[in-house]
């Protein structure tokens, strides 16, 4: 008998928590990006777990698309970071606040 799904969900939640905390506290944009990837993985794990529990491949399809989107997001995100870096020569997120209201 395989491991009950809720364990996986707990692990995914923990992973998501770690990712979120990482995004909120780290000041280096790239590390924040990585934490976001972490959160995405947590989500993927949840999808897969439910796919198994509900015996529905939809979960895995969703993960498939999440991956695609994540990839696109990383590409564009890093592109932005490079562009910003060109102007401000810094990746500390707090210095980039020109969009102040």
């Amino acid at each position: 008998m395989s491991i009950p799904g809720s364990w996986y969900l707990v692990v995914a939640a923990l992973l998501f928590g770690l990712g979120a905390f990482g995004v909120l506290t780290r000041r280096n944009v790239i590390v924040m990006f990585m934490s976001v990837e972490l959160m995405l993985n947590a989500v993927n794990l949840t999808f897969v777990t439910y796919a198994r529990m509900l015996n529905d491949v939809g979960g895995q399809v969703a993960v498939f698309f999440v991956l695609v989107v994540a990839a696109a997001e990383v590409v564009v995100g890093l592109g932005i970071i490079v562009a910003i870096f060109r102007h401000r020569a810094t990746v500390t997120v707090d210095d980039i606040s020109s969009l102040k209201g």
Binding site: S2, I3, Y8, V11, I30, F33, M34, E37, N41, N44, L45, V48, T49, A51, R52, Q60, V63, F64, L67, A70, A71, V74, V75, L78, I81, V82
Partner: peptide, 30 residues
């Protein structure tokens, strides 16, 4: 974990695409 849950293809994609490409991109940018 994906493999454990029977999602072999996704595990493979995860390793190849994600770990392989995305993280490499990160390192490249760093």
């Amino acid at each position: 974990l994906f493999i454990e849950e029977g999602a072999e293809f996704l595990a493979a994609v995860q390793v190849v695409v994600y770990a392989g490409a995305v993280v490499v991109l990160f390192l490249f940018v760093i």
